[in-house]
Design a protein around this nucleic acid. Structure first.
Lengths: 161, 161
DNA sequence: CCTATTTTAGACAAAAGAGTCTGAAATCTG
DNA sequence: CAGATTTCAGACTCTTTTGTCTAAAATAGG
């Protein structure tokens, strides 16, 4: 469905949005919290900065930050910047000419799913995902559980897990 | 979205369903009509026979055939046999624990798309796809067009294109 | 029985994706 | 200015996917 690069990029973006208090978040911090290879994440986040979704800053106190308010960055933007928009536009069977004029045998059904996917991806903002991640961590912490497999990024930083 | 293997397998299955008059359809015929590498398609179709979706027969007059009526083979079956069912079950962000108890930040939205995808894949039969492909070719033929990029498999075999 | 045809099995190569590492450039702190 | 920190750029390796090829087993037909 989504490439690993894309998944890492989305997770990192959520992390950055959830840590909006920090001006620039070091990639090393994101990588260690999310348990992603630092160098690999670096390359993924470069794609997001080149797509103008993030700003970066070198040196001490450097890192990455959202280029826009988290309410204005959607899942669609992130996927488009890393995996491209093919998933939102292409034929399920990969047939180049598939469209209304020359539909493939699965065309009408797949377009229905695809358009819903597009709507949802366009509506889902980093802001709302970061808030969901926050709620999740509060609940997990209250239940004395540790979101190891879930979303280690967003766990509270008070350290009492 | 779907792997190339999976796309080839689906196209080939539609082709076989559309050529139900032939008892066994040689893979070489499918490959040349669909313009897929013969040896590669061979391996893909072996997956479908091992999954009991197709029968195969060696030697002259051999080939592959559907193991069940085309009304009883769904897109879900084909995808499941080649790419596996992960796409119908897995979290969008690939998080292992994601579920109702521990949803990831995009959980509820993705499950909505995913369940619609599952419903459609389970309902869409080879029979209906083969019929759609047939209608398409009639129309294309009437318009003196040649479904080269579209679905070369299903074009009529009368040869007057 | 012999030959042609076809699937089966598996080795091999090419391409893309994922992950690792090194060095250079920028920037802060003292 | 010196040293530490951090992104940037690119080379490199490993794995998976995709694609190609060869030989063996099964089967039909003469």
């Amino acid at each position: 469905m989504l490439s690993k690069s894309c998944i890492y990029g989305i997770q990192a973006a959520i992390y950055v949005a959830a840590n909006a208090s920090q001006e620039f978040v070091p990639i090393s911090q994101i990588a260690s919290e999310l348990k992603i290879s630092f160098h690999f994440l670096t390359k993924v986040l470069q794609q997001l900065t080149q797509a103008r979704l993030m700003n970066s800053y070198r040196g001490p106190k450097g890192g990455v930050a959202l280029a826009k308010p988290s309410t204005e960055v959607t899942l669609y933007d992130l996927i488009g910047a890393i995996d491209g928009t093919a998933i939102f536009t292409e034929c399920m069977l990969g047939l180049p000419g598939c469209g209304i004029a020359e539909p493939c045998p699965a065309h009408e059904h797949w377009t229905k799913v695809r358009s819903e996917l597009t709507v949802i991806a366009r509506r889902l903002t980093l802001d709302s995902m970061a808030k969901k991640a926050g709620e999740l961590n509060v609940r997990l912490t209250e239940e004395f559980r540790y979101a190891q497999t879930m979303f280690p990024a967003i766990r509270p930083l008070n350290g009492n897990h």
